[in-house]
């Protein structure tokens, strides 16, 4: 079976379907055409949510497991309802309330930041070998969700730790607000949120509180945001 997942569904549900072919619908694949989502969504909307709809409309799926509660986002709750009504694919909705934090080895490893995120996303749907990962002392932090456009991650050196919801993904506790809001004091951190995502409120608040840099990106990162992040990293060197 080909199973589309959204968010971080509870481990017991994923275990039940172990051995099947999982695909993470939150991902911006090479073939993802976000404009496809506009038959159901407003043109101006969260790019990640658009990718979910576009992927669900494009990939031939046998089942969708949609973690759609406060462990994901309000947008996810509404969009799961749209998919349930519009697709002829069975859709299971879940709320992941797991509280047992797994180690966040990838988030603090010496991998390039993009590779960290690739592994974090992979870790939701398959077992990832973390035994060879080495801890790195951080120079910077990146707080947020996996961005729609991963090229933003290439701006950071490997001495960057991951915080925010991406960290909750690796810890397998997507509803853990305490972990989501945890940052390292005095570590220069970029607080990233996808445009039109309610997590912007947290990103802006935490950036102000911790002298960080708040950035909001819609769809694909532009040169202005790149320059802004580059300046922040250089000024905090």
């Amino acid at each position: 079976m080909k199973i589309g997942i959204v968010g971080v569904p509870p481990q017991e549900i994923l275990d039940k379907y172990k051995g099947n072919d999982f695909v993470d619908l939150d991902t911006l694949f090479d073939f993802t055409d976000n404009s496809k989502a506009e038959i159901y969504l407003p043109k101006i909307y969260c790019a990640t949510i658009k990718s979910i709809i576009a992927n669900a409309l494009t990939i031939k799926l046998d089942l969708i497991i949609f973690d759609n509660g406060y462990s994901k986002c309000d947008n996810g709750r509404f969009v799961s309802e749209i998919l349930k009504r519009e697709l002829k694919v069975p859709l299971i909705t879940t709320q992941n309330n797991a509280t047992g934090r797994h180690p966040q080895t990838i988030c603090e490893s010496d991998l390039e930041l993009r590779k960290k995120f690739d592994l974090i996303v992979d870790s939701v749907i398959k077992d990832v070998d973390k035994s060879k990962l080495k801890y790195v002392e951080p120079d910077y932090g990146f707080w947020g969700v996996p961005p729609n456009d991963f090229s933003i991650l290439d701006l950071f050196p490997k001495e960057t730790h991951v915080f925010g919801w991406a960290r909750c993904m690796e810890a397998k506790v997507p509803a853990d607000l305490e972990l989501e809001t945890m940052v390292k004091e005095d570590l220069p951190t970029v607080f990233y949120a996808q445009a039109f995502c309610s997590k912007n409120s947290l990103a802006k608040y935490l950036a102000k509180k911790h002298n960080g840099l708040y950035v909001e990106v819609d769809d694909v990162i532009d040169n202005s945001v790149k320059s802004k992040i580059e300046a922040y990293l250089l000024l905090n060197k």
Partner: peptide
């Protein structure tokens, strides 16, 4: 030391 910055380019 760095305290704050922003850049409004759009």
């Amino acid at each position: 030391k760095y305290e704050e910055m922003d850049w409004n380019a759009l």
